[in-house]
Design a protein around this nucleic acid. Structure first.
Length: 832
DNA sequence: ACCGCCGGGTGCC
DNA sequence: ACCGCCGGGTGCC
């Protein structure tokens, strides 16, 4: 199953006998990869070349548009043309008309174009000096299924497409190289951008070296007149080497670009510094200060670039408009407050809410106006003040959020008038090359702000694996982007250094009762496993073995965690009552955390089902157990008989948010809040354990929030914001489910981490710790791992690194050697 | 000659 | 356009 485009590509190869069948195995992966990279927009990058045709452009002498040798031209239907409703206009890249396609050919093309059977593109190879007509090479592109219709339709009108060309050739061996290059498109964009610039005095926070570099680069991008990528001066003309277009006037330079630094490197601070440092003519923004002495300092000219040429600018433009997602508005306000000197009066207006001041005069008198994409989008159309102002600068924060060109938001963004344009984004490409178009269009990077040219010159070549296309894309991105990652280095030193991290292991003693209960369970388990070992049935009962381990781990956390067996549900229940209770139980389990671990696969429960003995598993996992053991199938956790038709599924249940919060204060949480500003992450992989912790935390008057996998994205954002706040009444503790949230989760407000129970996979723990031990962390990070002494937890830690291996062996190949070592692992774990 | 041929006028769609 | 086409002038060789 591969895409028609690729089938087409392969047919080509067999035709020209370049490749043999051995490449066919790669086709699936290749097509998938390309599809993923292109997200298939059928009219652009999903198209194949039908063929070429030499045509004629006529009427040159009536129009001013000129073309160069090799220049691409656009073909536009003119159904309203009074002389011929089939008219096809020929225009150069700036949209200046060059001529028309000759009538008879236009009639044939009109049929193809109007029925959307193909897109027709033109390149002029010769005759550019002609007075009256010139030849044009037309190529027809479209969906594979329309190929024959187009070829036949043209042939019927006397035009035979030459289908022997090779422009659509996809050179497979280069593909992976290209794919790799594309993945690294935004890497290493620091070359020759290593000047540093001091921020204006009004910036109160000293910039780090890499931030000074960024400031220097941003000022240069705003002030220096550098030709945009692919433009060069040839005599009196400016020439674009990609499209072969030339113009007398200097192409409009891109004043701005993409700051694509990793999260946490200070894009916001750098942008604030830019606003204050680079006003007109490279001078700082003139701001009022409360202390007269400081006025002199602030207005003082710092480091005026000699190449500043702003004569054509509207010097009355003052305001920088910042557009961001709602969730980061507070961050901007906070950082402006934090980084702008206290004695500096910067006029900042938050253009948000129904009472917002829509006066253009008022808005353009501000230094900074902040608004959201939604407000901008809602405003656009009906006399939007934001669209009526010629801004000094527009900044798109988290710029990658606008990437669907058809969205209202995108149109609103593209309609803004500004002298300088910036995009801030940690991840400028979300999915594919396509995402870049919006960014280039916003920056008005001609000619790529027109989709056709972008598609023809960059997107299609790149998605079809063309080397030159990718190289052009790289050049393009390189010219307008600055990106550093956390691992980038300045003068051989890392950009930022993280504060120290200390990890200590706290051994926890079980109370006497707990120890007795634990030993009981352990001996039971030991005996069971011993029996399996003796019978040689360890592997057949592997799920059971893992369940035993799980129960022991739960013992180490809290007795209430231990799943109740069916006897607790009441043996006298009627089947209907039992079912009712089971549904209730499953609802509780799901409500308290869908990332509950399945005892069979050890992963978060996926497609949860509950057994009649009230244990929750992934449906596929438990189905496999039942399938293997057939009528003798027993619950891996409690050995009750289980039947496939007795499993109760989630979709029968109306999920209710409910927290199981009874429980007793676990003695293992030694919170000492000496410094009241220190915040804590309390992490467990058992969300029910987090629930158990809630009551005692409440009792002891701790303010806390909770983040687990069951929460909606909106709720998560809200909780994170609350926790990250430095306000005095903000929560000091976050109860965090180990697997909740993505890698991007930023919990730097916390500096202490309590890992309440060891995870099978040490990488999971590391990831969790990194949520607070990351850029933005100012304190030393202290991590405490609680391990119950003389328990399975200790052994778990010992074999943590082998866990992945263990699971693989459990469900992997049937290799005898592996089986033996697997059994050894289990024996070690149980101290057998 | 209801043709052919010549040469001037003319010219996108 | 150093073309093609059109239409008026013209007409044996």
């Amino acid at each position: 199953m591969f895409s028609s485009r690729w089938r087409f590509g392969l047919d080509r190869y067999s035709e020209v006998d370049l490749f043999t069948d051995r490449y066919e195995a790669d086709v699936e992966t290749l097509s998938q990869a390309i599809r993923a990279a292109a997200s298939e927009e059928p009219d652009a990058d999903g198209s194949v070349l039908f063929g070429h045709l030499k045509g004629t452009v006529v009427g040159l002498r009536y129009y001013t548009g000129v073309v160069n040798q090799g220049e691409m031209v656009g073909l536009v239907r003119q159904p309203e043309n009074p002389y011929d409703r089939n008219a096809v206009m020929v225009a150069n890249i700036y949209g200046n008309q060059v001529g028309h396609i000759k009538r008879e050919l236009a009639a044939a093309m009109a049929h193809v174009m109007d029925n959307n059977l193909a897109k027709v593109e033109g390149v002029v190879h010769s005759g550019t000096k002609n007075t009256f007509t010139m030849p044009v090479m037309l190529s027809f592109w479209g969906k594979e299924e329309n190929k024959n219709a187009v070829i036949e339709g043209m042939a019927r009108r006397g035009y035979k497409l030459n289908t022997g060309g090779s422009s659509a050739t996809v050179v497979i061996p280069f593909f992976f190289q290209l794919k790799n290059a594309f993945d690294n498109l935004f890497d290493g964009l620091m070359e020759s951008k290593d000047g540093e610039k001091e921020a204006a005095k009004s910036v109160g926070t000293p910039l780090l070296p890499h931030q000074k570099q960024a400031l220097s680069w941003m000022c240069a991008r705003e002030n220096k007149s550098v030709l945009p990528p692919f433009w060069e001066k040839r005599g009196e003309l400016y020439y674009n080497s990609l499209t072969c277009f030339s113009a007398k006037e200097i192409p409009e330079r891109i004043r701005g670009g993409i700051l694509a630094d990793d999260m946490g490197l200070g894009k916001t601070l750098t942008t604030i510094a830019l606003i204050l440092t680079n006003f007109h003519n490279g001078k700082p923004l003139p701001v009022e200060t409360f202390v007269s002495v400081a006025v002199c300092e602030c207005v003082q000219t710092i480091c005026v670039e000699s190449s500043v040429t702003e004569s054509a600018d509207d010097l009355s433009a003052r305001t920088t408009l910042i557009i961001c997602p709602l969730s980061v508005i507070s961050n901007w306000l906070h950082q402006l407050e934090q980084h702008v000197r206290a004695n500096v009066k910067l006029n900042v207006y938050l253009y948000y809410g129904s009472e917002r001041n829509r006066s253009k005069a008022f808005l353009s008198s501000q230094d900074v106006v902040i608004t959201t994409y939604n407000v901008l989008s809602a405003d656009s159309g009906n006399k939007s003040p934001l669209h009526g102002i010629n801004w000094l600068r527009v900044v798109l924060d988290e710029g990658h959020v606008v990437r669907n060109p058809n969205a209202q938001m995108s149109k609103a963004v593209l309609g803004l008038k500004a002298q300088r344009r910036w995009i801030l984004s940690g991840t400028p490409i979300q999915n594919s090359v396509k995402d870049l178009w919006m960014l280039l269009a916003f920056l008005r990077l001609k000619p790529f702000d027109v989709r056709e040219w972008w598609n023809r010159v960059i997107q299609r070549p790149v998605t079809q694996g063309d080397r030159a296309g990718l190289q052009n894309l790289q050049t393009l991105v390189k010219c307008i982007t600055l990106r550093r990652t956390k691992s980038s280095k300045v003068n051989g030193r890392p950009l930022v250094s993280l504060p120290e991290k200390a990890v200590c292991v706290e051994q926890v003693e079980l109370s006497q009762t707990e120890r007795e209960e634990y030993e009981l369970a352990r001996n039971e388990g030991k005996n069971t496993i011993r029996k399996y070992v003796a019978e040689g049935t360890v592997l057949r009962n592997y799920a059971d073995v893992l369940a035993i381990l799980m129960r022991l781990r739960q013992h180490c956390c809290h007795p209430d965690l231990l799943a109740k067996t069916s006897s607790d549900l009441g043996k006298t229940s009627t089947p209907a009552e039992l079912r009712e209770r089971l549904i209730d139980k499953l609802r509780l389990v799901l409500a308290s955390g869908s990332d509950e671990e399945c005892s069979v696969c050890l992963e978060s429960v996926h497609l949860p089902v509950i057994t009649h003995c009230a244990h929750v598993y992934c449906r596929p996992c438990i189905a496999q157990v039942i399938n293997t053991e057939q009528e003798t199938a027993r619950c891996p956790l409690c050995r009750s008989e289980i039947k496939a038709n007795e499993l109760v599924e989630r979709h029968l249940i109306r999920l209710l948010q409910q927290c199981d919060s009874d429980g007793k204060w676990p003695s293992m949480l030694p919170l000492r809040c000496e410094d009241s500003s220190i915040k804590y992450l309390v992490v467990s992989q058992f969300t029910r354990f987090l629930s158990i912790l809630e009551a005692p935390l409440r009792e002891h008057g701790f303010s806390f929030v909770r983040l687990d996998g069951t929460m909606s994205q909106k709720k998560r954002t809200q909780v994170i914001q609350e926790f990250q706040s430095s306000a005095a009444d903000s929560p000091a503790i976050m109860l965090l489910s180990l697997k909740a949230g993505g890698v991007g989760l930023n919990l730097t407000a916390a500096s202490h981490v309590f890992l309440m129970d060891p995870a099978w996979n040490p990488a999971t723990e590391e990831q969790c710790i990194d949520r607070c031990h990351r850029l933005g962390q100012t304190r030393k990070v202290v991590v405490t791992k609680f391990i119950v002494k003389d328990s399975v937890e200790e052994n778990m830690v010992k074999i943590q690194r082998q866990k992945q291996d263990l699971v693989e062996k459990a469900f992997g190949s049937s290799n005898t050697e592996r089986k033996t070592s697997r059994i050894d692992d289990i024996k070690a774990l149980m101290e057998l």
